[in-house]
Simulated scan of single mutants.
Amino acid sequence: MIKILTILGARPQFIKAACLNRAFKHYPNITETIAHTAQHHDKNLNTIFFEELHLTPPAYQLPPPIGGNRLQTIARMQNALETILRTHQPDATLVYGDTNSTLAGALVSHQLNIPIIHIEAGLRSYNFDMPEEKNRITTDKLATLLFCPTELAKNNLLNEGLTESKCHIIVSGDIMKDNARYYAPYAKKPPIPIKQNFVLATLHRAQNTDDLKRLHVILEALETIGGKTQVIFPMHPRTAGKFRNDGPGDGFENASEFENTDGFENKKLQKSHYKHITFAPPLSYLQTLWLLQHAQAVLTDSGGLQKEAYFFNKPCLILREESEYEELIKAGCAVLMGADKEKIIETFGNMRDLFHPPFPPHLYSPPEPYVGDSGNLIAKKILEIL
């Protein structure tokens, strides 16, 4: 019997965890217990995902964060997770991706000599200003089992000096593809005004939200696009916190506040300035899947949405200067935009020329970079190795 403690804290991790949570239930020699760091504690980013994805409720729940910077938040998580790990005494801890919760779980587990299983290992953007890049690199260095979604991710680890003598590096396929396939039939239309033609846009990366000038430039591009094609913009609390409250009933009264430090007129933005953007609160995974299924395109700085756009045959404009998913860039299924207003508008206007139907074209020779059935492979390899 192998006891695994899975450490989760943020919206993308709840979604990814649903895949392995389902798979583990078919393996009686694996028991999974979930610890929730409360990195995302708002209902729209937290509880609703456990409910609609039928994810096993957490046995351990950390209190919501009470302010402080990133290092202080990680330190609080570490202190609480140490107590949990000493009490639970798992055979291994399992972490996903690149969040602060991932790093906290990996650091504590390493100090307590508990093997670490890292899902989505080997992804690299090579932008070392991103907290996520620091988190994923450190976690990879500490992990015992590294499950890579693609061959490129595995090669990244090998190029950094990791070898089978130090750890186990396995190309497992992509659990997000498993989830996209599994939950697609259950997609639900969100309760917001939706026109026949629309695009899905999201922003939450610190590099875009903590610089109000940069955020304004991107929103201005979306505003221009919205004059011709509806732009549906679900607001992450980090992004919503950059906006001034436009009055009662705007749907963002409880959004977290983030101090403005970039001197952009020493003000917050106003949603009323962007009349052609359909702002919405955070949406559930099933509602997001519905939008992905019906959107003309996706404009995002999210890593996960880049891949999900590809899974649902939608072109993606990446609102960053780099991406962890180099395969999509090389194949022409996604284009890097940065925060260049004119480039975003022009590229969107020329999408029909850039992305010829049917999309995506058959640019990949076998094997496809994002293969499915990852959950079963990961479960089998955990049993085999541990």
Rank of each mutant, 00 (worst) to 15 (best):
K3M: 07
I4L: 14
L5T: 11
T6F: 02
I7H: 04
L8A: 08
F14N: 07
A17H: 05
C19Q: 12
A23R: 04
H26E: 14
T31L: 07
I34W: 04
A35E: 10
A38P: 03
H40E: 02
N44T: 13
L45C: 03
E51K: 15
E51C: 03
T56P: 02
T56E: 13
P57S: 05
P57R: 01
P57A: 05
A59R: 13
A59L: 15
Y60D: 07
L62S: 10
L71T: 12
Q72T: 11
A75R: 00
R76Q: 14
N79G: 14
A80N: 14
H88L: 06
Q89Y: 03
A92F: 04
V95Q: 07
D98E: 06
N100W: 07
A106L: 10
A106D: 05
L107T: 00
I119P: 05
L123K: 11
R124M: 06
R124L: 10
E132K: 02
E133C: 05
K134W: 08
T138S: 03
T139H: 08
T139S: 02
C148I: 10
N156M: 02
L157P: 12
L157I: 11
T163C: 10
I170M: 06
S172E: 02
K188P: 06
P191M: 04
L203Q: 00
H204D: 04
R205M: 01
D211A: 03
L212S: 12
K213D: 15
H216D: 15
E220C: 14
E223G: 08
Q230G: 02
V231Q: 01
V231T: 01
P237F: 07
R238D: 08
T239N: 01
D246F: 09
D250R: 04
F252M: 09
A255L: 00
S256L: 14
S256Y: 01
E257W: 14
D262P: 11
G263D: 08
G263H: 09
E265I: 03
K267H: 12
K267Q: 15
L269A: 12
S272D: 06
Y274I: 03
I277R: 00
T278P: 01
A280E: 00
P281A: 15
L286A: 07
Q287T: 03
L289G: 00
L292R: 01
Q293F: 02
D301C: 13
S302E: 08
G303A: 01
K307P: 10
E308L: 08
F311Q: 00
K314V: 01
L317M: 06
L317A: 05
S323F: 11
E327V: 10
V335K: 14
D340R: 08
I344D: 02
E346A: 15
T347P: 00
G349I: 00
D353Q: 14
D353V: 13
P357K: 02
F359T: 02
Y370H: 07
Y370F: 15
Y370M: 08
V371N: 07
V371K: 09
G372Q: 11
I385M: 09
L386S: 08
